[in-house]
Design a binder for these strands. Sequence first.
DNA 1: TCTCACATCCAAAGCGATTTGGAAAGGGCT
DNA 2: AGCCCTTTCCAAATCGCTTTGGATGTGAGA
Lengths: 344, 344
Amino acid sequence: MNLKQLSEALGLSPTTVSRALNGYPEVNEDTRERVRLAAQKYNYKPHARAQSLATGRAFAIGHVIPISTHQQVVNPIFGDFIAGAGETYSTNGYEMVLSMVSDSDELGAYKQIKARGSVDGVVVHGARSQDPRFALLRDINLPFVSHGRSSGETDPYAWVDVNNFGAFERATSFLLELGHRRIALLNGPETMDFAVRRREGFEAALMAHAITPVPSLLASQEMTETYGYREANRMLASDNAPTAFVVSSFITALGVRRAIERSGLQMGRDVSVVTYDDALSYLPNGDEVPVFTATRSSVREAGRIAGQILIDLINDPFAPPKTHLLEAELVIGMSTGPCQTTPS
Amino acid sequence: MNLKQLSEALGLSPTTVSRALNGYPEVNEDTRERVRLAAQKYNYKPHARAQSLATGRAFAIGHVIPISTHQQVVNPIFGDFIAGAGETYSTNGYEMVLSMVSDSDELGAYKQIKARGSVDGVVVHGARSQDPRFALLRDINLPFVSHGRSSGETDPYAWVDVNNFGAFERATSFLLELGHRRIALLNGPETMDFAVRRREGFEAALMAHAITPVPSLLASQEMTETYGYREANRMLASDNAPTAFVVSSFITALGVRRAIERSGLQMGRDVSVVTYDDALSYLPNGDEVPVFTATRSSVREAGRIAGQILIDLINDPFAPPKTHLLEAELVIGMSTGPCQTTPS
DNA sequence: TCTCACATCCAAAGCGATTTGGAAAGGGCT
DNA sequence: AGCCCTTTCCAAATCGCTTTGGATGTGAGA
């Protein structure tokens, strides 16, 4: 059933039917109601492609997901993020189109998306410190919102981000107050902007206690479970092992816990762990009482907000781009306790 | 730059330019080359929406991701699956459009997608045993491929699946051969077709050793980490605790390991675990030597194959629908060993 | 009665591609 | 030359919608 057929069935012109359904004022309310009922009865839905050709708007938003060319790792937070964004889209009548692209030809992917005209805007995933994508997107005039900030950027742009600096400063301070002095950081890859901010927050907290960070207690890699296991093992076996870990990802923290237990130690008593928790739906942090002490912020919520900011931007391209800084909350779990060893 | 502008720049008609680019024979090879070069020079890409309006094909494939209304869990395998499908799409010039929809109005989502004409076909995620989606999709004439089979279906349909029965029969047999007799199964929700097949494989192996399954050693829920922890804890604390676990998901297996270690036992020595492993990119099963003994099949590969099957089906709707059964391999890790306790 | 404003509806022209049905030019044959 | 067949190109219709610019009818005011 298309518009023409529907209009014939109603004895009206396509113009009137279109206007009735789109809420234009120049149509009688009785007629509008009649049209509405008929549309429902015949399950008429405007053909999206035709509609977008006529309006010049795609009513779709693109997500370009970079996949690291070498490691081929799909970021686990991605599912929950787009679930959040998807909620926003569906309530606003938008579709979501996805491109998985190896990060080497990501820029080309944006150009192509723009030329093909299949989306009204894009969400930039995994902002890096000096990120060439921002300049490109401005250049080709494609509205965007970024998940994560990019420190290199001077011009304003729309973003959603977590206060990574604050979260890691707080997590580290919490451990310091428990008496820990040798604290390790298992960070994400520092090509990512968020990872840089997290390290800075970590270091700021140490500095405030007059402690200089030890390079051997810093790691920065793709955040897998085995990464946590391997690095924690290495550090725990070293000469002066850390008494506490700050970890950038829940999954990596699972690996850290495995290493701790493999060493015959007990997490929370012998070694403390604070992890960042994206609140992934399939990785809840325990039931009533949290397993890990964690700085937590829902990535799904971030997705919801990002979607809304982008839609607002598309509707009003000349408004100043909105930004949203989420604060991570510190939840106390069973993975932290006072430092046992007397500081040397 | 659109087709008309490009044709004017070339001094040709839009018709000829279109034909040149689409490989039609009625155009001189020299002209074709000239057109090609100009298209490249101006970075001309056909406008996807216009193209699909004219051809009646969207060159896009839909994925409807059901989110369990109550628990709001996004299936973790989803990211890797669509990464695989995405590879196939991009090499074939297709886009991927995603809808996250709460499973209560999933059927409506398909109807809407069809009416809006934004995709040429859909991938059905998470096939259930009696699954109403198949009838609906046939009814509205929307090509589809299913990830997972549906036992209720009698008519042929396209699918990709893992030999779940075989994988769990094999895993269970492996444990039986190690001397285990009290074996627990932590399964996924048995509304899912794959979960039913897995239990059947598990039971078949037990039966072959003349063992009747014990209800208290069976669990069937959403496959989170805490689920594994909770259920394993409960079972290990019970009167006659299992000496081995068969687990339906890597993430759940992490919870099982946590429970084992919390009980002061050692995995692989005191209690054995075999898990199903979807080979998620961010959850590798150890480095060189696998942590878990596992039946493994890459869900990303499944995504690749599903995408190809669907595209083939779209190109030739009257061909018999293709199917693909993946075999899971059994990899031996450190989580299994001979049964220590003498059978009672 | 005539005029004007307003409410209500419609015909036709886009949007940017593909595709049908020729038209024009060139070459081979009688 | 005259005819026909190829080769090479093009004008115009089409896909399903929106939107511009009227057209028609009605009632109020003069």
